[in-house]
């Protein structure tokens, strides 16, 4: 698997592709995951990374929300992740390693149930909420060529919502 040593940044077109599912859960995959995690940990306090951010167009994500308060699963490798169900919506501030020096408010589901495989091909299922769920949704967007920029909402419309009739 090909990986760059540095995170690629928008407008690199590879960030806009739909990534392919992983089919071989082998040593090459695990070596790639280790490389990708190295890139994530070398960045400025990143809590997740997706394979396309290092130029690899496969459905692989690493998240680690353990540095933040609130319940989380620690370091997770999510391969071919799928959202099985979700509930609620919350606004939060996001930035992206691939879009430096920019943050924006994004609405995400509050609670998620996801299914995926780990790096050994074992099926896994996780329930998660709030910050950790936000990280996973941000990363899963990367697998479908979406950036948080596509979802940013105006601060003002969120701050001062009109009553819906």
């Amino acid at each position: 698997m090909f990986a760059t040593r540095e995170v690629i940044t928008w407008p690199d077109e590879r960030l806009r592709r739909i990534c392919a599912p992983v089919t071989a859960f082998d040593d090459a995959l695990r070596a790639f995951v280790a490389d990708m995690e190295g890139v994530m940990r070398s960045g400025p306090s990143a809590v997740g990374i997706a394979a396309p951010q290092v130029g690899c167009l496969y459905r692989i994500v690493i998240v680690d929300a353990s540095a933040r308060k609130g319940p989380n699963h620690g370091r997770l490798v999510l391969i071919n992740p799928e959202i099985v169900s979700w509930e609620g919506s919350v606004m939060g501030r996001e930035g992206c390693l691939s879009v430096p020096d920019m943050t924006g408010n994004v609405v995400r589901a509050q609670d998620l149930v996801i299914e995926c495989f780990d790096e050994y091909g074992r099926p896994q299922s996780y329930e998660m909420s709030n910050f950790e769920a936000r990280v996973v949704q941000h990363e899963m967007d990367h697998l479908d060529g979406l950036l948080f920029l596509d979802r940013v909402v105006s601060r003002r419309s969120d701050l001062f919502p009109r009553v819906k009739k």
Binding site: A46, V47, G48, R68, G92, E94, G95, T103, V135, H138
Partner: peptide, 12 residues
Amino acid sequence: DVSVHPMETMIA
């Protein structure tokens, strides 16, 4: 009504 919250920016 005064409310003050930490802002947490998620970078990923």
